[in-house]
Design a protein around this nucleic acid. Structure first.
Lengths: 348, 348
DNA sequence: CTGAAAGCGCTTACAG
DNA sequence: CTGAAAGCGCTTACAG
């Protein structure tokens, strides 16, 4: 058995006695009315027959376009990001683009490494969740104008850039107001110690509403790296001990909520009798938990759609500088059993 | 401000008055004792200074190696696969490889599409969870010997190929035996209707032990597409109604367990009083659920490590035909509160 | 309507 | 110890 050699445009040219140029035109649909119907048919049939596919590496080298998008997520194993990734993947593939995923772990150095790893490749676009303290790097990247840059899940108000984000300020305000309206007097906030916009806005939204209602700001901010560790849980535990008045908790991320639920369980605090719970980001877990946990759900499908379609459009438009793509989507408050006052609970 | 042009090896050559060949040798560490220390130093310093990085597309075109691995998972948004993906990613990057992820959704057509999408690119390796009915395609792919092919999460016993899998038969036997030993008389099995090896082996393990203990086989197999749907839940519900004797349930996947837990909740069946529960694959959810759910946990880190290191080794060895990489890892039974007989429950 | 030729940025025999 | 040149597989001005 001979080793099946990869067939090239040159092989086709020889076989059919037609020039490489003509074949390339036909493949790239630049044939139009320049090339005779018969030749087109002949070439197309032959390509079909032998299953020829142009070598995309050569195409990339020649054109400078790789049909590749890098999605640099905070953590690709987080259900929120992996759900986004999966939805984007499909649409990207349909449009002839591949996506390479990676995780920054919210670390500046890691993000820098990844960036330099991909910048020498001809990546057409970056969809990126910048880590802590990455504003200046993002500015550089955007100004280079070498590829489309789409920022996800956060934005910089002092930078002209494309982004898709949740309306975190509004969501957080609504969440806090909802808890106050439900009759809870002392709403506590468990957030992330971080300079990125969603973290900031979720805290501000909470503080704004709490202050407007003459309540005290009772919040604790957990460093990113401690969220899933024993240290993080300890911080939440101490926060609760320091603030025994708290009758309601708003968590800024699903990971914080999970650590928080563990603490509440360990401390035998009942939900919602002792303390009601509301968290950002929905997960299977929250629906199944006893009691089920109320959430501000991010519209995952919409976010993914805006992200990838926005990126593809910018790619098509050859990202002329004028085009800016900025979408702010609303969160959805899903009321479950963790945030009802049991006495007034009229749910199923 | 001038547009910063990408610097090429030719530019360096001109700038330094040294031939392209010599520079290429130095970059690729093929300098050895062929090139004078001074020249090497000069070139390396200059490269450092201007931040030159070789164009990887050109390297790929020339060498046929792209330093790219495709990980074709069943579903990249499933926590099991995304955890595996993330661990592999890091090791791959350290070794100069990128990973492209995609999801087959366990659909043959989708997997075929993806395969043809990536085959024309110079992908160096496939790490793949083949979908239903993909044996013959895998045979073709393996025999082509164009790239390293590593199969994950399943294997074909009539095919010579590289794989990393869980010992599903053993795990399932241990799980079933454990439930019987805990005093449950009628263990039911909720599995997947599928021809892939883990599904088969998990069912067989259950059947084997149940038969050996003179018990009846009470199992239901849910089609892959129905697992998360109302139809799937209905099938589980009816299965339970048809088999009221069941006092213990073994779920073959975490998704099945989640649907199962929903049904148990809806039917107000208490765990473990009315029915005890044990499932394959661990998740946050199972630890936090009330009661916490016992699981057969797959060793995610080990699996990811074997997968990527095995693949990288095969890549290094230029995958001579003789090299076969086959790893079967043991599952770990984690006993939680869902599988104790309440009366004998001596846990915390 | 079609083709010969340059060039994308590398690597690697080959020559000296 | 170093360099000129071919070639990986394409696309695309340019010519006729």
């Amino acid at each position: 058995m001979r080793k099946k050699q990869k067939i090239s445009i040159k092989d086709i040219s020889k076989e059919l006695g037609i020039s490489i140029t003509t074949i390339s035109f036909i493949i790239n649909k630049k044939a139009e009315n320049k090339i005779s119907k018969e030749v087109i048919k002949k070439v197309e049939d032959y390509i079909e027959e032998v299953g020829y596919k142009p070598n995309s590496t050569a195409q990339t080298l020649r054109t400078g376009k790789s049909k590749t998008i890098v999605f640099m997520a905070e953590d690709i194993s987080d259900p929120f990001f992996s759900a986004i990734a999966k939805e984007m993947e499909e649409i990207a593939f349909e449009n002839g683009y591949k996506i390479i995923y990676c995780s920054t772990e919210n670390k500046k150095e890691r993000a820098l490494e990844l960036l330099s790893l991909f910048k020498d490749r001809q990546v057409d676009a970056f969809i990126i969740t910048p880590p802590e303290g990455f504003r200046d790097e993002m500015e550089k990247l955007v100004n280079e104008k070498k590829q489309v840059v789409m920022v996800f899940d956060r934005y910089y108000n002092d930078l002209e850039h494309n982004y898709v984000v949740l309306d975190n300020l509004d969501s957080s305000k609504r969440a806090t107001r909802y808890l106050l309206d439900s009759g809870y007097q002392n709403v506590g906030f468990v957030g992330l110690k971080s300079d990125i916009s969603p973290t900031q806005e979720r805290l501000q939204g909470y503080q704004h509403v709490v202050a407007a209602n003459g309540q005290k700001d009772r919040s604790v901010l957990i460093p990113f790296d401690d969220v899933k560790t024993a240290e993080g849980k300890e911080m939440i535990r101490e926060f609760l001990k320091r603030n025994p008045q708290i009758d309601s908790l708003l968590f800024a991320t699903n990971s914080l909520a999970i650590s928080g639920l563990k603490v509440l369980k360990e401390e035998s605090l009942r939900i919602p009798d002792d303390v009601s719970v509301l968290t950002f980001d929905d997960r299977d877990l929250f629906e199944l938990y006893s009691p089920s946990i109320s959430v501000i759900s991010q519209p995952v499908s919409e976010l993914a759609n805006e992200l990838i379609k926005g990126t593809l459009n910018l790619l098509k438009s050859d990202f002329k500088e004028s085009v800016k793509f900025q979408k702010v989507l609303k969160g959805r408050l899903i009321e479950r059993n963790s945030s009802h006052l049991i006495s007034e609970n009229n749910s199923i």
